[in-house]
Each structure stands twice: as C-alpha cells, then as structure tokens.
C-alpha cells in the first residue's frame, strides 16, 4: 500500500480517520461492557487508538474477503480486550455494527474472548496470555517460506509480557530476521491487580526488546498521529522485527477511568456510562 511514501496531506487524513475510529471504538466498548455486565474496559480504552490506527488504513485487508491468502494479519494477543477488537472489526465492515449489542449474550458469536471460527476478521483465538506472539511469528515465517508479502501485526498487553512464551517467540523472531512482523505493546503500566512495576518489573522494557534483537520505537500510544507515523515507517530496521512500545493510559478518554487499576474489569453504571459518553463526544460529521 501507500504507507512508505505517504504525503503530509495523506497523513493528515489518516490521522483524522484514526482519531474518529478510536472515539467510536471507545463508545462501542463502554456500551458493550455496560450491556454485558462484564468486560475489560480499562484495556479496551488504552488500546483503542492502536486498533484505530491499524484499522484505518495501515492493515491491507478486505473485509469482504476475510480469508484472502495475501491479507495482512492482525493478532489481538490481549484477547480480553475483545470489546475494542469487535468494535474495530465492526467499524471496518467485518461484523454488522448492530450486532455489537450481542456482546457476551447467550450464544453470541461475540464471546468474551475472540473465536476466529465465529467472527470474521479474527485471526487467532486468544485469551490466555502469551499466545499471540508465537502465533504471529508462525504467520510471519509462513510468508517467508511461501513468498507471501503480507505483514503481521500483533498487539500484546504489557503485564502479558510476564508470560515466558513471549520471550521464546522474541528470540525466534529475531533469529528468523522477521522484519515483516510488528509487535505493539500496550504499555499502560497496569495489570489486573496492581502496577506492572510493583508486580514484576518490566523495565527497562525497550532495552529488553533490543537485547532480544528487535528494532524498537517508543511512542505515545494514545496519539493517533504518533501511531500512524510509526506504522508508516516499519520495518524500523531491515532484517529485524519491529517493536512499538505504545505508552498508553488505561481507561484513556474518560477522566474518571484513566490510570486506575479497578477499571481493568469494572463495569460502568448507567450514570458512569452516560458521563463517559459525554466526555468522549459524538462524531463531528
């Protein structure tokens, strides 16, 4: 696609589209979690801008042909943020937006964690942490073996990096020189029970990824412009997998949710939902 040689005007359009999509993802996600009575809104909100940037022009995908062999793959390793993922897929055209109201309802295809056999556009069944990156390494390696030019993107949480399987995959990705693979770490610094650094230290995170042979960029992961810009420059280095450490805020977009651990899986009340939707605002167009 056009990303490597985006004009400033194109970039502006892409950033505006990502910002618009991010707001929709946040609005849908909070409504879905409220209606379902459960979910993981804090992480949905921290990853909304990352998903929005990917699904508003970065990913070379065709929702009408979700299994096209040459498609770019996006793997949502932090599967508990399914509300954000389903919202992005719905806005992209994989799933009717009206069906988001079925989230976690009995027999809904929109399970609490994504199922690729039920939801078009889902590439991997995730939920247990530490599964997405190994799968993404396989997908990227398959492109190398079969001569495919698709790119593979994977979004992990930060607490998730405490799972050792990620580091097995990190070693393999650099050993295989998979510069067609991009990892985005949703670095919101909170995990279910506490701050990541009070639980098990992840820092120096960028240094760790560099030590494992990855090309690393640290950006503001809630800034659509920074995300669009970073994704336009991958691979960051030829012959190395790319790692975007996206510094985010859990609950980003709603003042009373931001950076608060309890919103990992707290459900907004009707009053809180109404207040949040006002803060997030409506589409201007």
């Amino acid at each position: 696609m056009q990303h490597a040689s985006q004009s400033p005007a194109d970039r502006e359009v892409a950033v505006a589209a990502a910002a618009r999509l991010a707001r929709r993802i946040r609005r849908h996600s909070l409504q879905m979690v409220h209606s379902a009575g459960l979910g993981h809104p804090g992480g949905d909100m921290s990853s909304a801008d990352i998903l929005a940037a990917l699904y508003s022009g970065v990913l070379r995908i065709n929702p009408a042909d979700p299994a096209a062999p040459g498609r770019d793959r996006f793997i949502m390793s932090k599967g508990h943020c399914s509300a954000a993922l389903y919202s992005a897929l719905a806005e992209a055209g994989y799933v009717p937006v009206e069906r988001l109201s079925e989230y976690m309802k009995p027999l809904s295809m929109l399970n609490g964690h994504p199922d690729r056999n039920k939801v078009p556009g889902v590439e991997a069944n995730t939920g247990p942490l530490g599964h997405g990156l190994p799968i993404a390494v396989g997908v990227a390696k398959a492109a190398r073996i079969s001569g495919g030019d698709w790119r593979t993107f994977v979004l992990t949480g930060d607490g998730e990096l405490q799972e050792g399987s990620n580091w097995e995959a990190a070693m393999a990705a650099s050993h295989f020189q998979l510069d067609n693979l991009t990892l985005i770490v949703d670095r919101n610094r909170l995990q279910q029970g506490d701050r990541t650094e009070s639980t098990i230290t992840l820092e120096p995170l960028a240094e760790r990824w560099r030590a494992f042979g990855w090309a690393v960029r640290e950006i503001d992961g809630n800034d659509p412009a920074a995300l669009v810009s970073a994704f336009s420059q991958i691979p960051f280095e030829t012959g190395k997998p790319s790692c975007v450490i996206a510094n985010t805020r859990k609950g980003c977009g709603v003042s009373f949710m931001e950076d608060r651990a309890e919103w990992h899986h707290r459900v907004p009340t009707a009053v809180e939902l109404a207040a949040a939707l006002i803060e997030l605002g409506e589409d201007s167009e």
């Binding site: 062999p69 793959r73 590439e123 991997a124 530490g130 599964h131 990156l133 190994p134 799968i135 993404a136 390494v137 396989g138 997908v139 990227a140 390696k141 398959a142 492109a143 073996i145 079969s146 495919g148 698709w150 050792g164 399987s165 097995e168 995959a169 393999a172």
Partner: peptide, 15 residues
C-alpha cells in the same frame, strides 16, 4: 510453547 504457537501461525499462513 512457542513451537506449537508457531505451528498455529504457519497454518494461518496457509502451510
């Protein structure tokens, strides 16, 4: 663990 995950990814990639 990585080996089985990579297997799933290779299958996703058509192998």
């Amino acid at each position: 663990q990585n080996m089985v995950g990579i297997g799933a990814g290779l299958a996703n990639g058509g192998l």
